[in-house]
């Protein structure tokens, strides 16, 4: 467990302006998360994080198709969420942070997901 956390902490230092990485289930309940002090509290709440799943589901009805990644940019932050059902990976970063670098972190997280998916799949 600590090993997984350490991998995520390493990722935080790889991209400047990345504030937190959260791996949650589809209701926004965190399975694993690493945060820095600058992470906005509101954006790490389940009600916000679970909106991604809903947005993807509802967006597909508009004809967008089943989206894999959602990138939202706000005035101060950007939020990147990747669909790995039953898990959701969320990155919260500064709006000036390099989005491509953050998307590139996916390949580092993928090997961790096996154990995390096991933990979630058993519970649900």
């Amino acid at each position: 467990m600590e090993e997984l956390r350490k991998v995520l902490l390493d990722l935080l230092s790889k991209v400047s302006g990345l504030y937190c990485v959260l791996i949650t289930d589809r209701d926004g309940v965190p399975v694993l998360k690493v945060l820095t002090d600058k992470a906005p509290d509101l954006a790490t709440r389940p009600s916000f994080l679970s909106t991604f799943g809903l947005a993807i589901d509802q967006g597909s009805k508009l004809g967008l198709g089943k989206a894999k990644t959602l990138i939202c940019t706000y005035s101060q932050y950007q939020i990147i969420q990747i669909n790995k059902l039953p898990l959701i990976i969320s990155f919260i970063a500064s709006d000036t942070s390099n989005t491509g670098h953050i998307l590139g972190l996916e390949k580092y997280i993928d090997p961790l997901l096996v154990n995390l998916t096991l933990a979630v799949a058993d519970t649900q």
């Binding site: 467990m1 997984l4 209701d27 309940v29 096996v114 995390l116 096991l118 933990a119 979630v120 519970t123």
Partner: peptide, 20 residues
Amino acid sequence: ERMRQYSSKLQQACASNKLP
């Protein structure tokens, strides 16, 4: 409750499956 369940399950999963 769910967070607690996840963390205990994750401990088990990590113990049985080592990271590559």
